[in-house]
Amino acid sequence: MSGTERDEEKGSAADAVKPGAGAVGAQSTTEAALEAGAQNVPAGRTPLEIVDVRRGMFGVTGPGDTSGFGGLVRTIAMPPPSERPYGGWFDEVVDILAELLGEAGIALEDAVEKVVVDRGELTLFLTREHLRTVARFLRDDADLRFELCLGVSGVHFPHDVGRELHAVYALMSLTHGRQLRLEVTAPEADPHVPSLVQVYPGNSWHERETWDLMGIVFDDHPALARTMLPDDWVGHPQRKDYPLGGIPVEYKGATIPPPDTRRSYN
């Protein structure tokens, strides 16, 4: 085989594995990604709720993507509500919580949007107005005793309309050796979530950091202020739509521009 023929063969093989390439009528990468949430779902289970399909790496689009991952397609999906029985001690926790809420005159469905069991972990999606009440019940009831909160993390889903900001809490029961997760959402237009410092005082610094970097406002926090950025800083850098930015770096006479100003090498 001559060198020219070998080069042509390599080119044909490369074209065959390009994202979205193939026979006539083949799916595009985006279409395939959109279907990913509905694939491999057991019978009787609700398909995943797809909120976004991301391309490339680090959120860079256009000629600025020099990562080499320009063809990467990732599906961002939310798990559906789980059906009973949840398994293990999960049913017991939900039943006790429902009983405590009922005694307080609150229906379970008004406080808990959905119960998700995924990868062996229990997550309670809560409404904002009942977050503090549920946290107190989980901490104080003798059969629950989730006395330790490991902090709060902020997550930003720009395409999850009306629920763009998520606050996630990891709770641990040292008494019973259990761990679960609480999650609440808030829209970017109203990024307010009740502070849990009154229930878990150790959350003070975590809530400040989440406000600083994600912009979630924790109501009734004793001293909500920035932790890493100057007080007069505009914006919250860990949001997905925050400008990538950067500063030129000079190394041995070569200048490396910020990531969002680099040209594409594809």
Rank of each mutant, 00 (worst) to 15 (best):
M78G: 00
T255P: 00
C149R: 01
F146W: 09
E113Q: 14
V161M: 08
A254I: 14
V234R: 12
R54D: 06
A107Y: 05
H221S: 04
R145H: 10
L196M: 06
A43W: 02
R163T: 05
T227C: 10
E99C: 02
A225G: 03
V24A: 03
D232N: 13
D15G: 00
P259G: 10
D140E: 15
P63I: 07
E129R: 07
H176M: 03
R45C: 02
E103G: 07
D91F: 08
Y265G: 01
I256D: 04
S173R: 08
S2A: 10
M228A: 06
D190P: 02
W233L: 03
V249C: 01
E49C: 02
A135N: 10
P257D: 06
K114F: 06
E109R: 15
V197M: 09
E31L: 07
D91I: 04
Q27T: 05
Y86W: 13
L126V: 07
L224P: 11
T261D: 03
V197L: 07
R263D: 12
G154Y: 13
D141V: 13
L100M: 09
R263C: 01
G11Q: 11
V168D: 15
A23D: 04
P248S: 09
V249L: 13
E83I: 04
G235L: 03
A167W: 00
A13G: 00
R45L: 08
D118M: 14
T133P: 04
M172K: 12
P79F: 14
E109F: 08
C149L: 08
R45M: 08
D95R: 11
